[in-house]
Write a protein that binds this DNA or RNA. Sequence first.
DNA 1: CCTACCGATCGGTAGG
DNA 2: CCTACCGATCGGTAGG
Lengths: 196, 196
Amino acid sequence: MSKIRTEKNIAPKTVILEKAAGLFKTKGFAATSMRELASELGIEAPSLYNHIGSKDELLQEICFKVANSFILHLTKVENLDQSIIRKVELLIRFHIKMTLENFDEVFVANHEWRNLQEPYLKKNLTLRRNYEKRLVSLIQNGIEKKEFSKINPQVAALTILAALRSLEFWQRHKKNISEKTLEDTIVHQLLNGIIQ
Amino acid sequence: MSKIRTEKNIAPKTVILEKAAGLFKTKGFAATSMRELASELGIEAPSLYNHIGSKDELLQEICFKVANSFILHLTKVENLDQSIIRKVELLIRFHIKMTLENFDEVFVANHEWRNLQEPYLKKNLTLRRNYEKRLVSLIQNGIEKKEFSKINPQVAALTILAALRSLEFWQRHKKNISEKTLEDTIVHQLLNGIIQ
DNA sequence: CCTACCGATCGGTAGG
DNA sequence: CCTACCGATCGGTAGG
């Protein structure tokens, strides 16, 4: 009876994916039911399947969309003619922007990818590890060029990636600090530390 | 027929909690069934309920045990007569030790607390926010004493806490690096940054 | 500790 | 888009 409300030619599937990301973020993938998702969209559960293939498919699309965005940007940055420090800075800033602009999707991709079914689980893990390795190489490169101190590049890479997850906690403080300030502060802290 | 195997007077409930933490970590709380847990312990699902009250109870015990450990240690550190830098360093080192020594529990407490039922969900969130606030105060204190540069103490606190989650990725690299080196490297990176 | 079993809920299909 | 409904699985109880 009541169609999914789509503004300005947005495909119903897109609307479903958005709502799904929000629910998966708040309740977790496994704890979210298709009836709940349908209810939020104002339709009955079976109607969802006119637009999507399965619940698993929703998680797959969210996880791989996010992964591909990060990989695409990393490739661009690698090919820039810039200092390594600048490249790492650009990566950090991109993570922050992506996270703030696509909060639900990034959150779900980070927390719920474990619920992917094979072969997607393995594929996703490979993409993540590959991304990490390329960041490690970049940092290794920076150490060789004396831009970075003699840190352990693996520890540095994983620490930076994990630190960027702090953005997940920032939603509730959003009003207190501008995105620009937040970006600059995090970049400075990760590159320069906090000691006077 | 087959009892839960407990070595050296370990309570059956302890064994159940350990296995549960392992499963919740790998599959997530909602995606783990009590039949699966029972099967791993070599018993039938209904037998679990001779030792525990409910599935929810398992998650509660894990989350609050971990939270209380961190809070207890924070209180100790706050009362020490040491520099703020040293106090923050001690906190970082404790997080690393706790995470490496109680990997499954810490992982579950960090990732699955969203699956707690009220009033435990709210209680747990309060504990987490309170912990964060006390770390922010400590850092604020360090800025006032000129031990830290004029960073944003909230950003600094959340970045440090998030960065410590990088330990979750370190299980698979364990062989490559000693715990001592890992600790020193992370402490140095968070306090001093990575730039030469 | 088990077997037997319950009501509830799940993802998804059939058919219109 | 709906109603009607399916088999599977869930957390948990009864009773021994």
